[in-house]
């Protein structure tokens, strides 16, 4: 579960105030809004990457407002993927596990699972500069899922992709949604994407964040 309680976040000269929303465990929540409305800032605050000036962030019932990003157990996929240019796809998938001190065998098994799930088997030894936009986003998603987080935060993961690749990625996200009980917070400005994937839709507007019905 992700619960934001009257959250206020400052980003430079811009403040987004009094955000409250709840995404139940296993649900897919989409946060919508125009470019520049602060939806990515909210997502970064959930991940612990932006300091919170008031309010609380609760993950699975625990108050994590003061916790470091590393302690929150959130898989984060930023808009541009932000892959590590010096590492291979394999290293990306192993990164979080190596940090946690997993053994070689366990890491290999998990890489195999993720590569199968995301269709990365043939790309494992490539570096990011040799990947297409869709492949990069699949690697970023695999890296975020690698340590089996309870929460997944996706910041416009499909916005830089062409139409066909976006449909493929949408299908992949639907698969993840049905196969795993991960709770998702997905930020987008695309209504189609939102209605296709969401269990819950929230809209960031001039009067704060409002829950919308998903009218599919």
């Amino acid at each position: 579960m992700i619960a934001l309680d009257q959250l206020t976040v400052k980003n430079g000269g811009f403040t987004i105030a009094d955000v409250s929303l709840t995404i139940p465990t296993g649900s897919y929540g989409v946060l919508m809004g125009k470019t520049g409305c602060g939806k990515s800032t909210i997502l970064e605050a959930v991940c612990g990457l932006k300091p919170v000036s008031a309010g609380r962030v609760c993950i699975m019932g625990e108050d994590v407002t003061e916790r470091k990003p590393a302690e929150r157990g959130i898989g984060y996929v930023p808009q541009d993927g932000a892959l590590f240019s010096t590492m291979t796809v394999r290293d990306h998938l192993a990164f979080a596990l190596r940090i946690r001190g997993y053994g070689r065998g366990a890491v290999q098994t998990r890489i195999g699972e993720l590569a199968g799930l995301l269709g990365l088997e043939k790309l494992l030894d490539r570096k990011p500069h040799g990947l297409s936009g869709g492949e990069s986003q699949r690697v970023a998603l695999g890296r975020a899922l690698s340590f089996e987080p309870r929460i997944l935060c996706l910041d416009e993961p499909l916005s830089a992709l062409d139409h066909d690749t976006r449909l493929e990625m949408c299908a992949l996200l639907e698969t993840l949604k049905t196969r795993f009980s991960v709770t998702v917070l997905h930020v987008t400005h695309d209504r189609n994407e939102a209605t296709r994937l969401a269990d819950l839709i929230f809209e960031v507007g001039d009067h704060g964040v409002q829950a919308l019905e998903n009218e599919w």
Binding site: G48, P69, A70, I74, Y76, D80, A82, I99, A144, S146
Partner: peptide, 13 residues
């Protein structure tokens, strides 16, 4: 981009 370090932090660094 500091974004990559931020991602690394969410991964446990």
């Amino acid at each position: 981009s500091p974004r990559r370090e931020q991602v690394a932090q969410t991964l446990g660094c």
